[in-house]
């Protein structure tokens, strides 16, 4: 569904992404993991058009499409971020709707209503807690019936109840013509939400495999333990490769 064709990115001398060649398939739900500075944010931002790659292209369904055409298809939930302090929640939604020329009736408002955005519509964004701002971001990400959903640390800052609601919505969003990419530091949060794991390190894809495969190859039933084992295995493999 989404092809990453030899994308690389330099920030000055620092190479944030070494040429990456990979493919996100429709129907997949991918956990994008890796330590800080491993390039996962840069990769996501490249897909979102926030970062222009030094080399390479993003293709959708095998075709290079204009950036704005891709953005039409993407729903993005940022990490807890700053919004304009004095803007009302209702104004923010109005603004976002107007940018796409849509009315609220054309939109996917299930999460919007589940998080009861109407009730906080009169509040200004500056007065909201981090968790509530996260809810606003989540409701926005689902609003325009995206085909590709990109969630950056979606459950950080959410209370357990809201986190459960969000996960439920992510699960019901998944279908065989859609793609979900989630980054998270809390691996246990992703249990049951994802079917593939992409692990990045130092601007490269360390490994990219199905959760099932990961569990089988490491003999660890828990995703977290399987992951730790897989990171170890792959590092050893790479070392052998280098030695050879």
């Amino acid at each position: 569904m989404l092809q990453i064709e030899r994308i690389s990115k330099n920030f000055g001398r620092f190479q944030a992404l070494h040429p990456i060649d990979t493919c996100f398939l429709a129907g997949d739900s991918v956990a994008l993991l890796g330590p800080n500075g491993s390039g996962k944010t840069t990769l996501i931002k490249t897909i979102l058009g926030l970062v222009s790659p030094s080399h390479g292209h993003i293709a959708y369904q095998g075709m290079r499409i204009p950036a704005n055409a891709l953005k039409e298809l993407v729903g993005y939930m940022p990490q807890i971020g700053q919004y304009p302090e004095n803007m009302k929640v209702s104004a923010l939604f109005k603004l976002m709707l107007s940018l796409r020329g849509k009315s609220i009736n054309d939109c996917d408002t299930k999460l919007y209503h589940a998080f009861d955005m109407d009730a906080i519509g009169h509040k200004t964004l500056g007065t909201l807690s981090g968790g509530t701002r996260q809810k606003v971001g989540a409701a926005l990400a689902f609003l325009f019936h995206p085909r590709i959903l990109i969630l950056d640390e979606p459950t950080a800052g959410l209370d357990p109840h809201s986190s459960a609601i969000l996960k439920e919505h992510i699960a019901s969003f998944q279908s065989n013509d859609r793609l979900v990419i989630i980054t998270s530091h809390v691996i246990s949060e992703l249990n049951g939400l994802v079917n593939k794991v992409m692990y990045m390190m130092e601007g490269r894809i360390h490994f990219y495999m199905g959760v099932q495969e990961l569990v089988e190859s490491t003999g660890q039933a828990q995703l977290e333990k399987a992951l730790v084992a897989a990171i170890g295995q792959n590092t050893i493999k790479e070392r052998k490769h280098v030695d050879a």
Binding site: L48, N68, P78, G81, Q82
Partner: peptide, 16 residues
Amino acid sequence: YNSRDFMALLLTQPIG
């Protein structure tokens, strides 16, 4: 500077 997060969110929308 303080609006950078919000700018980024707007830039992920299909507008110039």
